[in-house]
Amino acid sequence: MFDHIDPRSPTPLYAQLASRLRLAVAAGELRPGEALPSVRRLAAQLRVNPATVVQAYRDLEHEGFLEMRQGAGTFVRDVPTGRRTSERIRQATVLVRQLIADAGRLGVSLDELHSAILEEMGAKAS
């Protein structure tokens, strides 16, 4: 799940981690009630500072995606469908914004980008 954590990115690691977890909850990849790895285990697995994992978990607890139970661990909360949908839409916007910025840098026009998207979507649907 955390393969794309990039220490070189200007986005802080805790924010990358939080964003990945938020999407996993929104997309149902993580189910309500499911236990997350302990701070110690996840930090060791990713070889990141434990404080980075703590901060990501805290942020998501604050947003209502996770629940940290003293001594028991960290669990996924039952997030209402509407909230999950809006989170996915937010992520979609982030992706598209990135795509448009990349296209601009490479000199690809918006029309060209748009038709490429439609074509790829058509290819996937058929």
Binding site: V39, R40, A43, A44, Q45, R47, V48, N49, P50
Partner: peptide
């Protein structure tokens, strides 16, 4: 390297 650093982080977290 991965094994060594994972053990190090494990110790520090605890």
């Amino acid at each position: 390297r991965r094994d060594m650093l994972a053990a190090l982080i494990d110790y520090v977290s605890e």
